[in-house]
Structure formats: structure tokens, C-alpha cells
Design a protein around this nucleic acid. Structure first.
Lengths: 199, 199
DNA sequence: ATGATTTTTTGCGAATTGGTACAAAATGTT
DNA sequence: AACATTTTGTACCAATTCGCAAAAAATCAT
């Protein structure tokens, strides 16, 4: 049933190329990343990049959305965890730290927290994407707190939204700290101690 | 005793010009800010900018240091406060929020947290400056916690360094949220609730 | 074989970018 | 007045940047 489309076949896989672009933006931020760098990373010439993804900002926003998708998946796994709240939270942070510390040339922190703010004050689209991502993190992190409260592991008057936002603040901080070069041990310590304070 | 220097007098005040450059970098980030934009903001031609401040990155780092100086002053005021810990912390956050929400064209968050990470992965000097600033925030915020502990307002086994780092995380988060366009009320709420959790 | 479609390649253009050389301007010193 | 010093202003440069037009390549459909 898979009908071969007409025309010259693509020399790239769109998902692979998008990930390669994302990695380039992740390391360099939006403005510092040139079309030449994206072309080199993806092996595509500039007209092909434009044809496949649109202009530079469109490609950035698609990369942002791709990264946000992975964040969404991590939040969903955290929401579905049956482990105790502190274990759930700690594992979420540890997983984030793994991603933040990854990078061929060193730690990159979080794509969203580390590259979008620089652009956000002057670009309404990037600002909106950032704001939406922050809200998703807040909402996603509230679920394990609400579950723990419903199961009696938190006081009945605990403000789960407030706790979630505090936990999200820890995530933002881990992101920036990783990019600044703090050690993995320091990040783990902050994660552990924050979980202790929150639970 | 003030001897008039030889040569043509300067047409600018270095401190004023530096602040103007800082504001431009604050809104646009490092890479998005052009020399023309800096020249326009300061009223100086490019050769004059180079003569006064060095190249673009030098000017950015000088701006960073200028902003860090103001942060240092705010931390010092917080360290010297005689108010109760929760009041001290809340006022520190409220003051930060005022700065983060300032801006002729909208909120800019924190110069350091919102502009340096984008560059930090690929520029060791900016990364080092960011890391140093993060450490200063951690250390500065530990002082009120240590005071409160010494005065018996915190349990004797309270880990003041951990609490300070959690408070610093809130500050980082406020910075990013402000830049993303969250409301002042939402930021105040996060600040208040975090202080409640921390004290 | 021809035509239609899709993608790649090559080459290009206008604008911008960071940085600099040098002459002119504006002062103090001798 | 001539010279030395400091700063400004003008003009320029090489390189880079983003985006695009058009031809060539590679396929399927008739």
C-alpha cells in the first residue's frame, strides 16, 4: 500500500534532521546558530532546509516543540509513577540531570530554559512558546503532589499547585546550573535536598 | 587638583554608556545585539565603543559585571536585614521581581539568568561568569538562613546551604518566568509561597 | 519518450556584522 | 605657534548572514 511518491527521493530523514538541528540550537542558542551550522549538522543545503522546515525561526520553534515533546513524555511518566512522592520526584530530577549533563562538547542544560529566554524579550513567538512550556511543567509536576495528597501522604491543606511550582523552580535552576558548569554531584545534591524540603 | 586631561574631551560618561549597553544586551541577549544597536543606545560610534570598552564580548562581560554588582548590593542588604527571615526573604524576592518586570518594552527578567545561558555552552568566559554569579547568589542567600538558625528561628539541624540553594532556585525561576511573560501577581504568589515553604 | 512532480545543487544577492585605519577635532604643554 | 595627546567621525573592509531563483537530478505517471 505504500506508494512510492513521485519526484527525486529525499536524501534525509526529517525526524533525524530535526533532531540534528535541535542539537545545534541547544548548544548555540537561536541567534548564535547560523544557517551554515544547521546545514552542516544536518548535511542539507540551505534551500533544502528552507523547503523542509521553513525559515530559521520556524526550525527553531519546531526544535523547541520536539524538545517539549520529550519533556511532556517525562512528565507523563512521572504522573503515572506508583512510587512514593519523594522517589518519584527524585527520579524525575535525576532523569532531567542526565539530559542536562549530556552533550558532545559538555553540559547543555535544558534546551528550553537555556536558549529561549535570550530571545523571549524581543520575539513574541518564542516568548509564548516558553511561557506555555513553563505552564506545562507546573501542571505536570502538580499531578504527583495531588496524588500524594489524595493518598494521605501530604497534609490535607497542602497547596499542591504551590509545591509543584517550587519543584518546577528547582528544575529551572538545575537547567541553568548544568549549563554554567556545576558538577553532576552538586546537581544531584540540590535535587535530593529539594525533594526533602518538598515532601 | 583635578587636572584637565589633554586631548579632546569625552562626549559620553562611561558609567552611563555602560548602563545603556547593559540595557541593550539585557533586552536582546549577547548574540542578537549588534554593534549598531549598541552604538545607537549609547550615542557613540563604533570606534569609540571599542576604544572605551574593548570588543563586543568585553562590553558584554563588563555589563554582566555591572549587573552582578547590583545583585551583590541587594544580597548585602538582605544579609544585613534585622527583619525576621521570612520577611527578609520575601522582600528580597519582591525587589528582584521589580527589577525583572522593569523594561521599556516589557519584562526582561534577570540579565544574568536570561542572557548568559544561551552563550555559556560555547563561550568559556561567559560560562565562568555565570557560574561565579550563581555561586554568589547561593552564598549570599545562605547568610540570612544562618542568622535565623543562630537565633533559634530554624531547627538546629537545618541545612542552611541547602535552604539557600533552594531559595536561589526560586530566584532563577522568577527570572525566567518574568521574561516569559508571567504576571507580577503570579511571581509574587510564587515568592510568597516559596518563603512559606522555606521558613 | 514525454510530461509532471519533488528534491537537490549551484550560484547569487542584498544586507548585516564586527572590527579597523586614518584624518579631523579638541584639548593641554612647551 | 607648534607639538603632543586624546577622542571623535568617516569611510572602509572582509566575512558572514539569511534567503532565494533557477537549473539539474531523480523519480512516477501516461
Amino acid at each position: 500500500m505504500l506508494k512510492k511518491p513521485r519526484g527525486r527521493p529525499r536524501a534525509y530523514d526529517p525526524d533525524v534532521a530535526l533532531w540534528q538541528a535541535l542539537e545545534t540550537f541547544w548548544a548555540n542558542g537561536f541567534s548564535r546558530t547560523s544557517l551554515d551550522a544547521l546545514a552542516e549538522a544536518t548535511g542539507m543545503n540551505r534551500p533544502s532546509l528552507y523547503a523542509a522546515f521553513g525559515d530559521k525561526k520556524s526550525l527553531y520553534l519546531k526544535s523547541f516543540e520536539c524538545f517539549a515533546g520529550q519533556l511532556r513524555a517525562a512528565l507523563a511518566r512521572t504522573a503515572q509513577s506508583d512510587a512514593p512522592l519523594d522517589t518519584t520526584l527524585r527520579e524525575f530530577f535525576y532523569e532531567a540531570i542526565e539530559i542536562y549533563m549530556s552533550g558532545a562538547d559538555g553540559p547543555r542544560g535544558c534546551f528550553i530554559i537555556c536558549t529561549a529566554p535570550a530571545e523571549a524579550a524581543m520575539d513574541a513567538d518564542i516568548r509564548a512558546a516558553l511561557k506555555a512550556a513553563l505552564a506545562e511543567i507546573d501542571e505536570g509536576l502538580e499531578i504527583p503532589f495531588a496524588k500524594a495528597k489524595a493518598e494521605g501522604h501530604l497534609p490535607p491543606d497542602a497547596d499542591t499547585a504551590a509545591l509543584a511550582r517550587l519543584a518546577a523552580s528547582v528544575l529551572h535552576s538545575l537547567a541553568v546550573r548544568a549549563r554554567a558548569g556545576e558538577t553532576k554531584e552538586a546537581l544531584h545534591t540540590l535535587a535530593r535536598q529539594s525533594v526533602q524540603s518538598l515532601c
